[in-house]
Design a protein around this nucleic acid. Structure first.
Lengths: 144, 144
DNA sequence: GCTTATTCCGAGTAATTCGATAGGTTTTGT
DNA sequence: ACAAAACCTATCGAATTACTCGGAATAAGC
């Protein structure tokens, strides 16, 4: 039940952009340094976040990244799901409409499936209840 | 955020033993067949559960495994933690008293750490609130 | 006592994933 | 023109996962 660095780094980077929201484009380099992440690796992660529409980029000198929406409108859950795929402790919870793959024939009768579904829901609840703005507020509080 | 098969199979096997609680030793083979798990692999998992004290074994012909306590006294959380290690979405939550390893120097200032701690707590809450007896009851309900 | 059913144990292994690294190509402000 | 930046694709070593294999020890039943 570990989060991969993708999710962790993704949240860290988005948090960094949230802190600097409204200050123009923030360079990948500076984010990587502040959050202590490999530059090249973070680059790939930023690509994912950009394609998902959570950040926009400006190329060329003095370029960088910035959020496409207010920090209060982006939840940690949004970020995690984009970085790690849908949250599901077990694959049989992924009924992605396309018939094949992880279908479990006794899903209806499976009692443990219910357990994993509850876990999934509780994780999603927690993650969706925390926005980037919340994290920024917390940071403010810790400073004082 | 995936559970490994260790955790899943562990719960499935323990659930199987709970269903047959009080019926004497249950052979690995029959558990493996009913739960559709590789026999040899399940063998290793049973070893973990035995060493943790949740099941006891009887060797030789007509031997097998059985729970050491009532199904109501064993939670899904107990099983998962034994099979997968402590639940912690990120390593910096593991302050296992022995100073080295995953200590994060800015833990006190880290706002994302709080997020992961909330996730951990909510997962533990769900898993600890469900006992093997609960699963057996659910199975009964589904039958009718 | 022999056979057979079973748990126990340790090593090996194929496949996958993770976390990066490398090396280049655009694009753009100065 | 130059340098700073985003973008892209490919590769790679290490670790982990989910097994498999081959036995050794133990006990019940005949």
């Amino acid at each position: 039940m570990k989060l991969s660095t993708k999710g962790r780094y993704g949240v860290a980077a988005m948090y960094d952009l949230a802190i600097h929201y409204g200050q123009g484009p923030i360079s990948l380099k500076s984010v990587a340094q502040r959050q202590d992440i490999s530059e090249h690796y973070l680059e790939q992660l930023m690509g994912i976040l950009r394609k998902a529409g959570y950040i926009k980029s400006i190329r060329g000198a003095q370029g960088g990244y910035s959020l496409t929406k207010e920090p209060s409108l982006i939840s940690v859950g949004d970020i995690i799901r984009v970085m790690e795929g849908p949250i599901a402790p077990v694959d049989c919870l992924l009924d992605d409409s396309c018939g094949d793959s992880n279908y479990c024939d006794k899903a209806g009768m499976c009692v443990t499936r219910g357990v994993w579904a509850k876990v999934r829901d509780s994780i999603n609840n927690v993650l969706d209840s925390i926005s980037l703005a919340d994290l920024c507020r917390e940071e403010q509080a810790k400073r004082s």
